[in-house]
């Protein structure tokens, strides 16, 4: 629903009001160009960003409201990229959080111009990237799966997983081991043994007694 579609299929479109913003110096991995747009940055066909420095916001608290009003309901992903450049930030951030939640805006904080630039780059660069990177992996190899399962228990690490696998073989054997057997494994102190054993033998449900009545 962005009005300016002609420009910026491969580059970030920058509102000319951003001229002189130091953030522009750090947009290096993605091309950018000035264009006539409502938001400050158009980082994708359906994504845009407004830029706000907290220092500026403290002096001109009405500015961000004006910009948001202008933005209306355009764009799907609407980012408020906020540069945290003051020490006493809590009140401002609290304020902005409220505004963002009620205006369908995603708040992103950056602590330096480099970081802000990097976010803009990333939004553009990842515009069409599938979410595989942040999705749960399907079907990894056996060791990863085993490690993943056993390290859910606090204080168990990958060395311990290997110790268990080589001492007992299958996961079934590991789960049916007694405390004494587990304690025989090198590196297994009393606490680790107890935690593992409890994890395997504690009932899943707390109030099972309740329901069996």
């Amino acid at each position: 629903s962005a009005p300016q579609r002609s420009k910026g299929t491969h580059s970030i479109v920058v509102n000319s009001c951003q001229r002189g913003n130091g953030v522009l110096n750090f947009i290096k991995n993605v091309p950018w160009e000035y264009g006539d747009i409502i938001p400050d940055y158009q980082v994708g066909m359906t994504s845009c960003a407004l830029f706000l420095s907290l220092k500026y916001h403290r002096l001109h608290p009405e500015y961000v409201y004006t910009r948001i009003r202008q933005l209306g309901h355009h764009y799907l992903l609407r980012i408020l990229l906020c540069l945290v450049d003051i020490e006493d930030h809590q009140a401002s951030i609290r304020d902005l959080t409220r505004i963002c939640v009620y205006n369908n805006i995603t708040l992103i904080l950056a602590w330096s111009q480099e970081e802000a630039g990097r976010y803009l780059e990333t939004f553009k660069a990842y515009e069409h990237k599938p979410p595989d990177l942040i999705k749960e992996r399907v079907d990894p190899d056996y060791l990863s799966k085993l490690t993943d399962a056993l390290t859910q228990v606090k204080s168990v690490n990958k060395t311990d997983v290997l110790t268990l696998a080589s001492a007992f073989g299958s996961l079934q054997n590991i789960m049916s081991a007694s405390q004494e057997e587990l304690a025989q494994c090198p590196g297994f102190g009393e606490q680790k043994v107890r935690r593992l054993y409890e994890a395997f033998h504690q009932p899943f449900l707390l109030n099972r007694g309740d329901r069996s009545r």
Binding site: I93, V101, T106, L107, I108, L109, T122, P131
Partner: peptide, 20 residues
Amino acid sequence: GSRLALLCLHFPKLRIVWSS
């Protein structure tokens, strides 16, 4: 940061609250 950006791209409705 990259992963967070990717998350935002895939969940435009997701609101992020930053708290110190």
